[in-house]
Structure formats: C-alpha cells, structure tokens
Design a protein around this nucleic acid. Structure first.
Length: 551
RNA sequence: GGCGGCGUAGCUCAGCUGGUAGAGCAGCGGAAUCAUAAUCCGUAGGUCCGGGGUCCGAAUCCCUGCGCCGCUACCA
C-alpha cells in the first residue's frame, strides 16, 4: 500500500465549447486516469473528479452564431466529451457540469465567504461595450492598433511587440464579434485581492519538494513579479449570478468563469457522494481532511490558476485544505510527415480529434503512445508515423507477442493449464526475484508522477519475457527436458500475469483482455498480486492477438 | 520587455543530489521457428551546441555566446 489510503484526483475541466483532441487527453486526462487507475489497483480509496466548464463568453458566442441557447451548446459538447472519454477508457467517478444549480449555490457560498473574509473589493471601471451585440467586450474580443508599435493587435496583448495592452488604449478599436465600434461604458466589478496572499502563497509553494520543477518555478516566478488583484465578476447573463441581492451594482453580473470553475471540483465531489447515497456535506471528508491528498492534473496553460489563483481562493475562503500537488504537462504539438511541428489547431487541421481517431483506432495504442510522448518536462510532438511504429514494434511485436506466444504454447503443450513448475532454474528464479520487487518499483514511479518511466518498466518486463522465452527455448525443452519446460512456462505465465496487472493503468482494455485469458477475477488483479505466480492447474482461456498492426 | 524551458548516437529521448556516456527505433551481421515474420544475440555509431570558470574530476554546478521554444493571467 502506498503513502495514502485515500486520494482525491481531479482533471482540468474541459471547456464545453469544443471537442477534445489528443493534446487535451495527453496533457491532463490520460495522466490523471492512469494515476487514478493505479491508485485503485493499489487498493486506495479514490475519487476521480472531472466535469465540463460550462460558463464563459465563448459558449455564449457560439450560441449567438448558431441561434440557440448557451445551455444547448454546452449540453451538446458535454455529451460529446463524455463519449470521447468513455471511448478512451478515461473513467471519472463523476463527470459533472458547472451549469448545475448545485454548483451555482456552492460557488455563491464560496464567494460570500471570501467576501466576508475581506478579500473582495468593489471597483468602478471603464470597459468597452458592443452596443450592437449588447455585451461588454472581454479584452481579447477587441481588435485595433497597438499604441506602442502601430501594428494591429488584440485587446489583451500585441502579438508584434509582445506588450500587454489595455483595450481602452487601443487605437481605432473594433469589436471582434460584430465589427462595430465599441463604446466606453462604466461598470462595477468585484476584485479578488490575491495580492494580499502573496507571502502565504510563496511560503506554501517554496516548501513543495516533489512538485515538477516547471510548475513550481513558473508559479514562484509569477509571485516574484507580484500578483495583481483580479476582477472576478463579469457583465454577462450566462454564469453564476453574483449573490449580493442587497447591492444594486450586482444586478446582471455573474462570477468570472475562472472563479467558479475550480469550485466545480468541490461541487462534483458533493454530487458524486450524493449519487452514492451520502450527504452532500460529506465532501468535507475529502476537501477539508488533511489526510487526503488532492492532486490536480492540468495542462501547462492552467498552471497560473491551479498553482496560484485557486490556492489563493482556498486560502481566502479559509476552510479548505490546499492541493498536495499540481501535476502539469506541457502541450503536445502535431507533426505530419515532412512538415514542421505545429500547434494543435482546429483551423489548420493539425489536430487529431478523439472522436475521429476512435472511428477506426483502438484506444490503448493511443493511450500508450500519448504516455510515451507525454510532455512531462517539455513540449513534444504527436507524429502519426510514430504512433504506428510504436504500435507495431512495441505493442504488437514485444508486448502482445509475448503474451500470445506464451498462452498458445501453454494451450498446445500444457493442456491449457498453468503447469506445475518442474525443477528450479537459475534464470527463472531471477525472473521471480524481479517480479517480486516490480510492483513496488513501478508504484514508486507512479506516485512520483513519472508515468512514462513507469510504463517503460512495464514494457521492459515484456522484453524480459521475450528474452527469457528465447533463451530457454521451451519448444526445444519440451522434447529434451520437460521438467525445465514446465518451469519456463510457469515463469512466463507469471510474467503474463504481471503484465496484465501492471499495464492496467496505462492500457485498461488490453489489461482486461489479458487478465481474461488467465481467468483472473477482479479480486485477483490488485497491484501487489503481480508479484505472486499463478497457481499450478489453473485453466487458461484461449488467447487471441491483443493488438492489430496499423497500416 | 518580464519570467521560464530546451539543445546528449541518423531519429525519439533517459541520464536524481558532479566520479570512466545510456535505452528504444532505424543500420549492419548472425541465431531461432513457440508466436500477429511477431522474437533473440552480436555489432557499429556521440569533442553530451560553442567558449570560459569552479573542482582531483562536469553532459551534470557557475558565467557567457549561439540556436530553438513557451508563458505573460479564458487554448490541456
């Protein structure tokens, strides 16, 4: 058993205004699912939480374009995302929605506590307003000319000179939504005084020893520059209403998505417990219990929020514990053969969409490949050729082949049963020794979130199996030394069992099939069971190829 | 501009707190035939981006130059 008996794992909330591509999966959902599966296999009590982030401007714009309601937009994408996750075996305990009434209530309560604790400040500001669309424009929806370099720029930042912009300073501003000339209007917003928490945040972050360096460095670097208080309300109709009924300024305002979204993790935890017949309030057993580590899996773009703003929110609220780790991956770029690496992009057609992949692709090879190229420390690129090569060489050739050759051999020459080990053989004992230690070794890597390394150890086991099989040459031993042959197969079957169990976090569908060949019941598939061999006489099922070649 | 990252074999990358360069794939040579021709063995291949410094000793620490990249607060 690992360091903790109970863990709370979250994966970044996908925005419910688009489909998922391999970058999303590799960056956040797959690592989170892999870790969650490992924890479950190791016997820990796990809550694996995710859901769609339904609020925000883009959903309202999509709705406007399509002539439907934001609700319809987010429902459609929410369902599409659920399908994608299921197809890939990403198994959340709950996939909630931030547009639920429960979430609104939870966010409002959180807001009020932060307010009462003195971390909110009301300010009157000027902002650009699109009269034609009838909405205040977020900075990035304003285009114009950069006052610094004279080139065209967006309202939040100039791409040419890199300077931060104040949308109000842009020359000849236009609304990116309607193209009309925006008006300057006054409005009131509530600002979150995260700057008051800089010292506490720095102290908390600096003490983290096991965080990935890029995450910690990045967050500490931001702190060095100083946090700005940040508006956490918006003039929109789609979102969680600001819960200050006695204040006329609050009318028609909602919470900023990045304020309500992370609270979604808490809401969904309560939703899940309710589903399981417990009181919603029991969420506190997880969120306010220092015995339970909370791990947030996110993409690199989210570091600011999860390592700074969200912890600041939790500190300001005052009753929650802070995340134990924020596990961030970098982006995955995309590279067609013969082309330069590019960002995943909808418009340029350089994204591999999950629903398209799943039409004729198997989930496990994608999971395997994404874990192998996982950008744990730096960006990497998704290359279709590379996916095919790794599938064919490593999954078909090494992993699948070892299991298949072992099982077909046992079926043919040992009557489809696990043989009684014959005489002791030194090499077989070495394998036993290795297998005895392996679950723990792989577990150490997983608990340190070195998923690529952990999976590499599992693949190495398959290589070891092939090497052992060839070296022993049971097809020869069978005739010359049947006792040794029995030992060989007994050992190989133990390796198959270990592969079936230890590959589960990475390739759950394959693991399920392999465990089925061995007739392993759910109770026999626990992580530590990989260390012990199959008992002699156990009947084996018929093996079939675990993977098919690509192309 | 500010902050950060990367540059190791033909390719993709490992190399934690400094102690004689590693893996997979591709290449070359061989073995084997139980297996989805899937496997195994052997072999070759690197002034660890350049330059300085610290040290008995640096891919590893410090400085500097070059090249690539990211973030900069609503793209995982």
């Amino acid at each position: 058993m690992g360091p903790h008996d109970r863990v709370l794992i979250t994966a970044a909330l996908p925005y419910a205004n688009g489909n998922l591509h391999v970058g999303h999966i590799g960056g956040s959902y797959l690592p989170a699912d892999t870790y969650a599966r490992y924890c479950r296999s190791a016997g820990r009590e796990v809550l694996f939480i995710c859901g769609s982030d339904d609020h925000g401007v883009p959903a309202t714009l999509t709705a406007r374009t399509e002539g439907c309601t934001p609700r319809e937009v987010v429902t459609r994408y929410h369902e599409a995302q659920v399908k994608d996750f299921q197809g890939l075996g990403i198994r959340f305990d709950i996939y909630g929605s931030t547009s639920s009434p429960q979430h609104a209530a939870a966010s409002q309560e959180f807001f009020l506590r932060v307010h009462r604790n003195g971390f909110l400040e009301k300010r009157r500001t000027k902002q650009l307003y699109d009269a034609q669309a009838g909405i205040f424009l977020p900075d990035r929806y304003v285009t114009g000319t950069c006052p610094f370099c004279g080139q065209s720029a967006l309202g939040d930042q100039c791409e040419h000179c890199g300077k931060d912009q104040d949308a109000l300073e842009l020359i000849a501003p236009r609304s990116a939504i309607t193209g009309s000339v925006p008006q300057v209007r006054e409005t009131t917003h509530w600002y979150f005084r995260q700057d008051l928490l800089e010292g506490k945040l720095r102290e908390w972050l600096a003490a983290k020893e096991s965080w990935r360096a890029p995450v910690q460095n990045f967050a500490l670097g931001m702190l060095k520059q100083g946090l700005k208080s940040r508006a956490i309300t918006r003039d929109l109709s789609w979102g969680v209403p600001v819960p200050l009924p006695e204040d006329p300024d609050a009318e028609g305002k909602v919470l900023y998505v990045w304020f309500d979204a992370p609270i979604g993790y808490v809401t969904f935890t309560a939703d899940l417990l309710e589903e399981r017949g417990q009181a919603r309030e029991r969420y506190a057993d997880w969120w306010k219990n220092p015995e339970v580590p909370i791990y947030h899996f996110i993409g690199e773009d989210n570091i600011v929020f999860h390592a700074l703003m969200w912890p600041a929110m939790l500190m300001a609220e005052g009753t929650f514990q802070l995340p134990a780790n924020v596990v961030a991956n970098c982006f995955v770029n995309f590279q067609f053969p013969g082309h330069d690496e590019e960002k995943m992009s909808k418009s340029r057609g350089t994204a591999v969409w999950i629903h398209e992949y799943l039409r004729d692709g198997d989930p496990d090879p994608l999971r395997y490949y994404l874990t192998f190229i996982a950008p744990e420390a730096q960006r990497t690129a998704f290359k279709p050729d590379d996916l095919a090569r790794r599938t064919n060489d490593e999954l078909v050739g090494t992993f699948g082949n070892f299991i298949h050759r072992t099982l077909t051999f046992a079926a043919r020459y040992f009557d489809g049963k696990v043989p009684e080990p014959g005489i002791p053989v030194a090499e077989a004992e070495e394998v036993q020794t290795h297998l005895k230690a392996l679950p723990r070794l792989v577990g150490v890597e997983l608990d340190a979130f070195r998923l690529k390394s952990a999976m590499g150890m599992v693949m190495d086991l398959a290589r070891m199996g092939n090497r052992f099989f060839d070296y022993q040459a049971p097809w020869k031993q069978r005739k010359e030394d049947p006792a040794r042959c029995a030992t060989t197969l007994h050992t190989c079957l133990h390796i198959v069992k270990a592969l079936a169990i230890l590959s589960e976090p990475f390739m759950p569908f394959t693991s399920e099939k392999a465990a089925g060949f061995l007739g392993l019941s759910a109770g026999e598939r626990g992580w530590a069971a990989a260390a012990t061999p199959l008992e002699a006489g156990r009947p084996l099922g018929a093996a079939e190829p675990l993977f098919r070649k690509i192309e």
